[in-house]
Write a protein that binds this DNA or RNA. Structure first.
Lengths: 238, 238
DNA sequence: ACAAAACAGGACCGAACGGTCCAAGTCACC
DNA sequence: GGTGACTTGGACCGTTCGGTCCTGTTTTGT
């Protein structure tokens, strides 16, 4: 069980079960295998960071959370806390975000219905933590966007993936939509409203805030329907 | 020039020019006078905290920012970093937030027009920093809502003040609005959308994100107009 | 069997943190 | 002229931080 293996010919049973298919922005497809310990650390760190933020999560906290023996054990897997943060963002959080992306891509469902399901999924995900945890991306964005360019860029990329997925969904739905719908703006609006709603929910410690905003957001989206299509959709939303 | 003076009979010229009229939640009206130095520290801290967050702003940073001679000088005015944080939130930031509240209250302007002006003011305020600084409340909320209950409560109070001001504005505008408009939900939606928009703008380093969302938000509000009133307003928005 | 990896545990480092304490000087006001 | 608030400057404290180094033992793939 190696750590990084840049070969394609890695077919061991244990190796592939933790494999992560990684399409680099420029390079070819790379198959990265991760040890169980590594994912264990990543999981523990993801939990702690989403609870207390990146700055307030110490390496020692992560070590305790992942039940490692000491610092040397941790630094055997990650060369710095920063690298840990990046990988948490890349692996754990993106995997979590892809649940939402998968819903947006679902080919058998009407696109605008998928958008509603996506919003429902955000609400459902927040419900799991009682609305206390908030969006991992939004939290890190607020904490580090000014201070740490590396994180800012990576978080921007996550939002951009959501936005582009919503844009292509809106493009798919264009027969049902008004001609003057601006997909770029609408996709940004949806993400901003959800991120803001999650933040407000966290501050108020009240899930109904998110639920109300989610419902309003669906109505806002329905506002962009062609007059003919508006009727049947307005029913479905209320 | 005392620090805290709980008497009413403080009429010295120097004393009143920095006085802050404070209506406590339960107690009577208290006249607190603040020395120049104190406000100087508060200003420096407010700047630093909005730039780097509360946790990442050290007391030494504030001392440098306010050009104090040393720690003893700082601790002559504030008994802890936490107290400093609370007072920054209470004094500097609330004063800043009240610019927005004043617009919402403006009695001579049509209520819904005021709402548009309020949104414009948020955009204008972000423009001053090129959209890099974000909302001081939103930033602190994301940073400390889980970790620090004292901050969470205070930030919640700020949002609640905004929301209640918008609610009463919507109540004032009810002749122009649909009967089924839910003022509680709509006010929350407006705040969440703006906070989310500011966050996204900060991440993308692109003010046009905020501008687009602000425009969409105005359209969303206009959606709640009575059919008769909708026409003339739709013009004004586009 | 052998090498490399993973695991364990602890000592240690320099820096930064929030905060205290002290000593001495300045200044305004009763 | 004294009292108390303000200013200056620095030493100091205990703790935590990210990170290094070192000495071993156990596991794993070949």
């Amino acid at each position: 069980m190696g750590r990084y293996q840049e070969s394609i010919a890695v077919y061991g049973v244990k190796d592939t079960e933790n494999a992560l298919l990684c399409i680099g922005p420029l390079g070819p497809t790379i198959l990265i295998t991760m040890s169980d310990r590594r994912t264990q650390i990543l999981d523990a760190a993801a939990t702690l960071i989403s609870e207390r933020g990146f700055t307030s999560t110490s390496v020692d906290d992560v070590i305790k959370g992942a039940k490692l023996s000491g610092k040397s054990h941790f630094y055997h897997y990650f060369k710095s806390k920063e690298e840990l943060g990046y990988e948490v963002l890349n692996r754990q959080f993106e995997r979590f975000a892809e649940r939402g992306l998968a819903i947006l891509r679902e080919p058998m469902i009407d696109p605008l219905e998928r958008l509603n399901l996506f919003i429902d999924a955000v609400v459902a995900l927040q419900s799991e933590s009682g609305g206390r945890r908030g969006s991992p991306f939004g939290n890190l964005a607020a904490e580090l966007a000014d201070a740490h360019e590396g994180f800012r860029v990576r978080i921007e990329a996550v939002f951009e993936r959501w936005a582009s997925q919503i844009r292509s969904l809106l493009w798919e739905a264009r027969p049902q939509l008004h001609d003057d719908v601006d997909a770029v703006r609408l996709s940004r609006f949806i993400i901003a409203a959800l991120e803001g709603a999650v933040l407000m929910t966290r501050v108020k410690r009240d899930l109904s805030v998110l639920e109300g905003i989610a419902a309003d957001l669906k109505r806002f989206i329905a506002m962009h329907l062609r007059d003919g299509a508006a009727m049947q959709h307005h029913r479905a939303v209320d």
